[in-house]
């Protein structure tokens, strides 16, 4: 319930009201793609920390930090579970911290690796929240419908269905309680069992809705031939600034990657080294470049003059 609450209509931003939704769809997507790509390719805690900081700053500048905070709690639990499972199942690592029954060994290396993995997942999750909260879905659909009509409409419908599903989940939850199902009582297993009908209602109703929406879309000639677009998507000053910052961030990351600074060795021994001054400068540069969009957004929100000019 909590996880979906941030996607409810009342918690969503009005499109076109923030810096992020006013960006060219390609530029916004490129920024998100860059963050995800770097987080996947890097295993260095500092790089991942920079990425997380940059995304959180972006979320704050989009006015979506509270929405992220509301939904992240349950996700953090999932990360903790993943980390625990990984620690118990993976026996690698030389520095044993704890031993348990059935030859369970908790190692420092494995624990560190799990934490890094958790941060990486958190970055990707936060990127998804930023996309959902700040992306102008209409512009995205209009832009991509010309190139990938089917995929674009599917993506638009999927994105649009999230708040609807959140609302339906809330209603179904209430109805199950009215029917006498103890949703809060019992052990974890029993609670999962009691909540299974919610998923069934959710899936079946969403399928029905999609079918009905498909009918409406067909009746309005979607996919009947070449489309035109209502909005003219001309890149503006802020798009060029973003593109420049991202290109530089990408080059900096490639440099970090080539230098071997982007990854960390966990097994068999955790290799923790101090940062050389050159390395520190490069990392600071990467942080600045990745945070530049959030800075631009902050200025956009704060000064009308700046907003009009970019």
């Amino acid at each position: 319930m909590n996880m979906l609450s941030s996607f409810l209509p009342e918690n969503q931003l009005a499109p076109g009201r923030c810096f992020w939704s006013s960006l060219h769809p390609l530029v916004f997507l490129a920024y998100l793609a860059l963050v995800v790509a770097v987080s996947v390719m890097s295993s260095h805690p500092l790089v991942l920390g920079i990425l997380l900081g940059a995304v959180l700053a972006s979320l704050a500048s989009a006015g979506s930090f509270q929405a992220w905070k509301g939904s992240v709690k349950i996700f953090l639990w999932m990360i903790v579970i993943l980390m625990v499972v990984n620690t118990l199942v993976n026996q690698s690592g030389a520095t044993v911290l704890l031993t348990g029954p059935w030859s369970i060994r908790v190692t420092l290396e494995n624990l560190a690796f799990s934490v890094v993995m958790g941060v990486r997942l958190l970055v990707i999750y936060s990127v998804f929240i930023l996309f959902n909260q700040a992306m102008d879905q209409d512009r995205l659909l209009s832009f991509f419908a010309r190139i990938f009509p089917r995929s674009a409409i599917m993506a638009a419908m999927a994105t649009r269905s999230i708040p609807v599903m959140g609302e339906r989940l809330r209603r179904s939850y209430e109805i199950q309680r009215l029917r006498g199902v103890p949703m809060q009582a019992g052990g974890r297993l029993e609670r999962i069992k009691n909540r299974l009908p919610l998923m069934k209602v959710l899936v079946m109703s969403s399928l029905e809705d999609s079918f009905n929406m498909g009918e409406s879309i067909q009746a309005r000639a979607y996919g009947s031939g070449p489309r035109t677009t209502y909005r003219q998507e001309a890149p503006q000053g802020k798009d060029f600034m973003m593109a420049a910052a991202m290109s530089m961030a990408l080059m900096v990351f490639i440099y970090i990657f080539v230098q071997g600074w982007g990854s960390m060795q966990f097994f068999p021994f955790l290799e923790v080294e101090g940062l050389a001054s050159a390395q520190s400068i490069i990392f600071v540069l990467l942080a600045l470049l990745l945070c530049l969009p959030a800075l631009l957004a902050w200025g956009w929100n704060r000064w009308n003059y700046f907003k009009w000019k970019i």
Partner: peptide
Amino acid sequence: EQLVMSTVEQEVAFGLENLG
């Protein structure tokens, strides 16, 4: 079940975009 786009203006334009 008929609204596809996020904003009113874009919704009104949706059919026209499809018709080219």
